[in-house]
Design a protein around this nucleic acid. Structure first.
Length: 437
RNA sequence: CGGGGCGUGGCGCAGCCUGGUAGCGCGCUUGUUUUGGGUACAAGAGGCCGCCGGUUCGAGUCCGGCCGCCCCGACCA
């Protein structure tokens, strides 16, 4: 993308409404603009971030055997009466009436809808297990939206649902999703710790929240410092080997880690004192097992091998895609701006033309831009070098390809790595090799 | 929802107490200058002062109502 022709409105000053770093930086780097309390428009660069995060989430869900689908944002109140959550959910649910005065709602989550879809289309235990997910906008009418996209009212979420014939199967699905989540967060460039969590209105008795540690997090968390050292990735674990899956699950859940709702002071005392960490976390995902709560309430059953009907066992699995954009920035920034992990950066590299109009400089920039293509943001504005440097740092591209007349005359340019601030003078080909690695 | 605060060019703010033709910095446009970390000078453009009503000869300023936004708390798959 050529910056001169892009809607990436960077701000030099901090907008007054933004209190925390990620919110300030998302506004200043031109990623988002607020439209109403807790409701944001994602500008082109922001949309690219959202798309990158969603794509990684999608790939890891697919790899875990989940199937992508797409359910609507608007749901019928009838559906929610079946599970008795229409009244239970309270004012956080946005209720709408259509022109015929039929009661609708903007979905805050989709357990009812997916259960209804399964009920209509699945009759036999042989059709199980299944895990389905979608990436869709949700709306929860929060009492007090804040912190930009970290607590918005409208937000993009990956929500998935597993259906198993029995408890053992459901536990396996739960463990598969935990593995998928750890891999997802790893690829997104953040360390998220699974913590025992409260199940809340979704109900059920087994749940973990995934928290990125950050002083600005909304949740108080307690965890064993050993988490800071262990391998959270699970790269080598096979989804199809139940022994490996169980071992990974044990590895993730044996050490103490809990949110304040589930904090157990007795168990806490068993953690060596020097390893007790109390901090704050940003919840970026949560997984639940809740058995047949919804399949029973909504009358979804399948015929088993013995001819008897059983209510499938469910789990649900959420990742806050739009919240992650903010959380990743919260965990990766400095005083100059964002420091994007390469996997989610809107642009892998900025081409900084220090002397727009200088023939050799322009030519070298154009060549670099042609070779890199869409993952480059070419700063071809007629602006001073200082402003371009400041904007590139603010936007947080992992790499900056700095091209000025001094080097261009000799066919050289400078490559700056945002996270280390390291600069190298190189020929274009060598720089591209490093950038594309 | 309880408490607190704020709405004035795109952004950040002053002006309001004590009513009298709307200001500053940044940004934007044009020109000159400068050119490897937000250059300097000059000339410009841009404002239902959140909305409605009231008081007054006159309201950004005073009074009432409403709306929006932010912060603390409670709440929060």
């Amino acid at each position: 993308m050529r910056l001169s022709r892009s809607l990436i409105p960077t701000l030099k000053e901090n907008p007054a409404e933004a209190q925390i770093a990620s919110h300030r930086l998302m506004l200043r780097a031109g990623l988002i603009r607020q439209q109403a309390a807790g409701i944001y428009a994602w500008l082109p660069a922001g949309q690219r971030v959202l798309r990158n995060i969603a794509q990684i989430v999608r790939e890891e869900q697919d790899r875990a055997g989940a199937q992508e689908m797409l359910m609507p944002t608007i749901q019928s109140a009838e559906l929610w009466r079946e599970s008795r959550r229409y009244d239970a959910y309270g004012p956080e649910m946005l209720r709408i009436a259509d022109r015929h005065d039929r009661e609708l709602l903007y979905g805050p989550t989709n357990e009812e809808m997916i259960t209804a879809i399964m009920r209509e289309n699945v009759q036999s235990y042989r059709d199980l297990p299944q895990i389905l997910y979608h990436i869709q906008w949700k709306f929860r009418d929060e009492m007090r939206p804040r912190f930009g996209v970290l607590r918005g009212r409208e937000f993009l979420m990956k929500d998935g649902y597993s259906f198993d014939f029995n408890y053992e199967g459901a536990v396996t699905s739960y463990r598969r999703m935990m593995l998928a989540y750890m891999r997802t967060f790893r690829r997104l460039g953040v360390r998220a710790i699974p913590m025992r969590a409260d199940t809340g209105p979704i109900g059920g008795d087994l749940s973990h929240e995934f928290h990125i540690l950050a002083s600005t997090g909304e949740s108080a968390v307690f965890y064993d410092a050993a988490f800071e050292a262990i391998d959270l990735r699970g790269e080598q674990v096979s989804y199809d080997d139940s022994a490996e899956l169980d071992a990974f699950f044990a590895h993730m859940t044996t050490l103490y880690a809990a949110t304040d709702e589930k904090h157990d002071t007795e168990a806490w005392k068993a953690v060596p004192e020097l390893r007790r960490r109390e901090g704050r976390g940003i919840e970026v995902g949560q997984i639940f097992y809740f058995g047949s709560k919804y399949t029973k309430a909504m009358g979804f059953s399948v015929v088993g091998p013995d001819g008897a009907r059983i209510h499938p066992e469910m789990g649900s699995y959420g990742i806050g895609v739009s919240r992650l954009a903010g959380a990743i920035i919260e965990a990766n920034h400095d005083s100059a701006g964002i420091i994007w992990p390469a996997a989610v950066a809107p642009f892998r590299v900025a081409i900084v033309n220090l002397r727009q109009g200088d023939a050799e400089t322009d030519a070298l920039c154009e060549l670099a831009y042609a070779k890199i293509g869409d993952s480059a943001l070419y700063d071809d504005r007629h602006e001073r070098a200082g402003m371009k440097f400041a904007d590139a740092d603010l936007m947080g591209h992992p790499w900056q390809l700095i091209v000025g007349p001094r080097g261009a005359a000799r066919g050289r340019l400078e490559l700056k790595e945002r996270c280390s601030n390291e600069r190298l003078e190189l020929a274009l080909e060598d720089a591209l090799t490093k950038v594309m690695a």
